[in-house]
Design a protein around this nucleic acid. Structure first.
Lengths: 191, 191
DNA sequence: CAAGACATGTAAGGGGTTACATGATTTC
DNA sequence: GAAATCATGTAACCCCTTACATGTCTTG
């Protein structure tokens, strides 16, 4: 499943510009799918070329023109086909855990810093997410969240908070074990 | 951080062939970093070209020759530099959660199947992992696990089992909500 | 006055996945 | 007899990331 399908997907909710699509990506599936302008704009151009979306230029005052994309009938069909054919994959690529795996090769101060950095990152994730959920639920007329969207959001929050708690539990013990390794009787310094 | 660094990393434990490195990747960091032969073999060739590893061809009876790679002094330095410079990133790419996000566009039977498929996958993950941990701890002389390695393994197990429990909790409610959406008074079938 | 939001794109490059190519041995 | 394990590699391709390029308006 590629960025094109994701664009079609968000356009199934309502017409949007490329810029808005990126924001929507960040709001809706930040913790399981990300894409930059460099992938979104070419994807939209491809979709338009293939007739899966139509474009309308909207002039704006005091702003650059906006190109609003709207999904077409063939677009709905393509989206449906794509969603039906897609395998439910799920991959994690974590440089952080790789670094932890090799923690015994690093100074233990650095290991502590890495854990702290990850902690801060995940805490920000959690707060931003909660903020957004409150935003959407606050607006009375806003489109109600679909059940699957709630599931995804709940999943993200659960994973991040679980990971955070685990890290906090493990940090102390890990650093103590590393210390014990690096100085078993203070005799290992000279090779 | 790329496959080259990961190869150097596992070679810091002991000399290995490309084939063994792939197995090690699968054993040690299956749930946060994967690489196929198509990335490992070229990576090893690059490392050898740059003098970060040396190769020794080992002839075998009834088997193709093996090329055993060993890390060099410059290799240790490069590994150290790489680990020091690396940012602790952590990305998830989940087609499964994208599919759940668009669950309302799918037949609810398909949604159930997707959840079941993911459940089976994660259950297998968990069992294989437990099997491997038991294997390594059973062998008395085997290299004891480094603290960071235990952390990574624990993280993986916790995440997978948490995700599994969440999915099982949410499956029923999700399907019921989708049903309610698709038939609000049995009137939505005709567009 | 700087930073960030709004707004759209291109081009190069990098890195990984997939498929192809080959072949013996062991296990079910 | 088929499938899995052991064993190494190449080549094409695809997709994404990053950097570049441009400009206004608003907010701190």
């Amino acid at each position: 499943m590629d960025v094109k399908t994701l664009c079609l997907g968000v356009l199934s909710e309502r017409p949007m510009s490329g810029y808005e699509i990126k924001k929507h990506f960040e709001d809706a599936f930040r913790h399981f799918f990300l894409a930059g302008f460099g992938s979104i704009y070419p994807a939209l151009a491809d979709l338009a070329r293939d007739g899966l979306v139509v474009v309308e230029s909207v002039e704006q005052e005091k702003r650059p023109d906006k190109k609003v994309y709207r999904i077409t009938e063939p677009g709905w069909q393509a989206l449906s086909d794509e969603l039906t054919a897609a395998r439910p994959q799920h991959r994690v690529r974590s440089e952080f855990l790789v670094l932890m795996y090799f923690a015994h090769l690093l100074p233990k101060e650095r290991v502590g810093e890495l854990i702290d950095e990850m902690t801060v990152h995940w805490e920000r994730c959690l707060h931003e997410e909660i903020g957004q959920v409150e935003q959407s639920s606050r607006l009375p007329g806003a489109a109600p969240m679909m059940p699957g969207q709630r599931l995804g959001l709940g999943y993200g929050r659960l994973m991040v908070s679980t990971a955070l708690a685990y890290l906090q539990r493990q940090k102390g013990p890990l650093l103590r074990e590393l210390e014990a390794l690096q100085a078993p009787g203070t005799a290992a310094a000279a090779e």
